[in-house]
Amino acid sequence: MSSSPPTIGVLALQGDVREHLVALAEADALARPVRRPEELAEVDGLVLPGGESTTISKLATLFGVMEPLRDRIRNGLPVYGTCAGMIMLADKILDGRDDQDTFGGIDMIVRRNAFGRQNESFETAVEVEGVEGGPVQGVFIRAPWVESTGSGVATLARLDDGTVVAVRQGNLLATSFHPELTGDHRVHRYFVDMVRAAG
């Protein structure tokens, strides 16, 4: 194992930032919140938390994070998005607002709030390829799903009905669900390993 832990940011414009900071620290990364372009420049990897994607998109544009992060993604920055974060990593989204921008990077179409409203939010066991030790508990909250993917995108997890809920393309990872809410940090460890391998 590498001696110095990687520095991984959590985009802290809005959402469940605290839970990701805790999970990353438990997975042996130096975790810190990122709200400004200069803070973005200092991290080896970034988590896009769950939250309200329309709010995060708007604030990212207003406060000058949108273009710098797109640049870093193009240059290979490892990024992991959960729920709203998955939406923000999609090249194309459905059921978003007309003016809703994403950072993009993963060649996929993601449908926002695809499973329905809060009353349809659920949790279930999900087997994730590359994550050892049995299924993780998938917590789906007004969650998006992956409608289709390009040829460079690997599907890492599906529900029993075949719905795609976790994908990876190069250094970019996205899940419809929230491992940060479970206390099980295996998916975060998987991402920390991606960041180490990229560094």
């Binding site: 802290a12 414009l13 809005q14 959402g15 469940d16 930032v17 605290r18 839970e19 769950g50 939250g51 309200e52 709010t55 729920c83 709203a84 809060q118 939010s121 659920f122 949790e123 917590v139 789906f140 909250i141 007004r142 929230h178 809410l181």
Partner: peptide
């Protein structure tokens, strides 16, 4: 799932 929904609203 109920408490997690509120976690997603934080900072907002």
């Amino acid at each position: 799932v109920k408490r997690g929904m509120a976690e997603q609203l934080k900072g907002g």
